[in-house]
């Protein structure tokens, strides 16, 4: 009898006590998180915009319409345009191979896809210098055939390609693993060709994840600094991408120029963030 009467009133509050932290813990954690975001994300962004416009709109536009800034912007767009489609195709192929086939060395390939994430970008750049630079493995052959890779646009593209290749594959592999291949097998058994199956069955199922991967890949391709910095040679108007242009301008005390270019990259980041949320929402709906 006593145990019955005792346990009933005690158990309910005890349970609530365990599940709910005190109010001050909730407020403290929220304050830390919000404070961190303001200090390290919002404040720098505000400073970029503030500094870019410090000498007025005219100076801002003048800084952006400099030939060097324009060239940097063009090169950045060109690099993204060249690398993102290539890495999209590569990501699809890799994800397909890993999720649909059994082959020796599969887990090694899966690990290698992540390599660019685990290697410092500067090292990645250096690899290309060691391979294609004047003193590198292929250096003599390349100079004999008058092909310039390092300190030229091809080097920048190669470095960017290397840095951004995991993005698409990493988005697709878990999704395609989870989906399995039954729908594709069903399409094949109904007489569809491999291409029809890919276009009509696989692609619609992975499109949001694919776009998400492409978006991240693009953001990184435009924003990459370390690897590109090593291979570019910082030739103004020729091999400077936007992130490199920011650094060069800043080092030359051209603060408006540096921050104006930085504001474009920041704007790109914000657009990416918004699109990313939209895609995540779309993906969640499907």
């Amino acid at each position: 009898m006593t145990t019955m009467t005792n346990t009933q009133p005690i158990s309910a509050p005890t349970l609530r006590h365990v599940l709910h932290d005190p109010v001050w813990v909730k407020w403290l954690l929220t304050a830390i998180a919000v404070g961190f975001i303001i200090l390290f994300l919002c404040l720098p962004l505000a400073i970029v915009i503030f500094e870019a416009c410090a000498k007025g709109w005219d100076a801002y536009w003048a800084a952006l319409s400099q030939p060097d800034a324009q060239a940097a912007l063009r090169l950045t767009l060109l690099t993204a345009l060249a690398t993102v489609p290539l890495n999209t195709v590569f990501g699809l192929c890799a994800a397909w191979a890993i999720t649909r086939f059994e082959f020796p060395g599969k887990s090694l390939l899966t690990t290698l896809i992540d390599l660019p994430f685990s290697v410092s970008p500067v090292i990645s750049g250096l690899i290309f210098v060691l391979m294609f630079g004047a003193q590198g493995w292929f250096g003599a052959w390349l100079s004999a055939h008058d092909i310039k890779i390092i300190f030229a646009v091809p080097g920048i593209m190669l470095a960017t390609l290397f840095i951004t290749f995991p993005f698409v594959a990493r988005e697709l592999i878990p999704l395609m693993q989870e989906m399995g291949s039954e729908e594709e097998e069903a399409a094949l058994s109904l007489g569809a060709s491999g291409w029809q199956t890919f276009i009509q069955i696989t692609l619609p199922n992975i499109k949001w994840a694919l776009l998400y991967g492409v978006l991240l890949c693009n953001a990184r391709a435009m924003g990459e600094f370390g690897a590109v910095s090593v291979v570019s040679g910082h030739i103004r108007g020729l091999t400077n991408t936007l992130p490199l242009h920011v650094e060069v301008s800043y080092n030359e005390y051209d603060f408006v120029g540096a921050f104006a270019s930085a504001s474009i990259l920041a704007g790109l980041a914000i657009v990416t963030l918004i699109l990313k949320s939209v895609l995540e929402w779309k993906q969640g709906k499907h």
Binding site: E182, E183, E185, A186, A187, S189
Partner: peptide, 25 residues
């Protein structure tokens, strides 16, 4: 004709489009 254990219906298509698939390809 193959019927899968977990149906393997095309999730992005309506029932009609699912059944029509084999004819349309």
């Amino acid at each position: 004709g193959f019927v899968f254990q977990h149906y393997a219906l095309f999730r992005h298509m309506t029932v009609f489009d699912n059944v029509a698939f084999g004819l349309r390809v």
